[in-house]
Design a protein around this nucleic acid. Sequence first.
DNA 1: ATGCTAGCTTAGCCCACATAACCATTAGGG
DNA 2: CCCTAATGGTTATGTGGGCTAAGCTAGCAT
Lengths: 156, 156
Amino acid sequence: MTRPQAREAARAVLKIVPLVMRTIAAELRAAGELPAPAHFGLLSMLSAQPRTLTELASLQGVSLPTMSNSISAMVQRGWVKRTAPVRDRRVVIIEVTAAGRAALQRVGRCAESHLADVLRPLDATAGRRLRGGLGVLREVFTRAPAASARPRRGRG
Amino acid sequence: MTRPQAREAARAVLKIVPLVMRTIAAELRAAGELPAPAHFGLLSMLSAQPRTLTELASLQGVSLPTMSNSISAMVQRGWVKRTAPVRDRRVVIIEVTAAGRAALQRVGRCAESHLADVLRPLDATAGRRLRGGLGVLREVFTRAPAASARPRRGRG
DNA sequence: ATGCTAGCTTAGCCCACATAACCATTAGGG
DNA sequence: CCCTAATGGTTATGTGGGCTAAGCTAGCAT
């Protein structure tokens, strides 16, 4: 990708992503599913496999305290549980509970159906473009957070 | 777009968008530009043309109080100013200041360059896909917020 | 003036994120 | 064994952005 194209794409991301974010959050709020947008990825990640806090924080690109707090909130909701393995009692393994899986299903269905309503009018071409672009974003940003977690200033 | 495709795309959006959001926010924080991700679109919108609060809230898909607070924060930073037109003294017109334009340039450059660094390694095909997908998202979500902004309480 | 509507602000709350500082466990050396 | 790091999490504190509810001011109609 050429430099100008990259800048153009970057600018587009900056304008669009927050908007999408707010829209999703608003949909979920309206549906009575308050705490989803940030925790959805987390829950879905944990649903695939249990993880330690540090792993989760790194994968989600947030600080350890943030992750600890998020998990505490989810524990209070009964969506996940902390378990201390015997081999190394410093670490905490986070596992999804049955309630957590249910919530994931519910929230996912809710957000998806709202979102899908918006996306459905798209024609085949637009749909293909959208899915292609999302795939690229996934590729890029599931690698990025770990790398960008280390403090790096200057280099404007 | 078929129903399963729409759901698939929706699920992808739910997993990816928050991640992208956090990554951008983290980049900006690391660069010492705290308050950007949410305000960037706003500043850029105001930079194109002055608007009233209600207009801004509607365009950004947030509530009026939220917009009022955001603008207050930006006023304190000296990025925008409120002016009361004589013709109708209920409304408040928000205008970008010179400092606001400068900040916009700066933040934009910073975020763009970080983002562009991540995007640059993409080959031509991926770049095309990304831009196509972003275009579709823009189409979809610059129409959506107004529709989803209608008050709907009840809280499940 | 009374009352209604439109536009904005204030008050009070929640969530997500950050840093700094602290506690707990493990690993290594004397 | 005890002391010191280093590793992994949690608590304390602060910031920002989002919301609803309630209040204030300006215009408009009667």
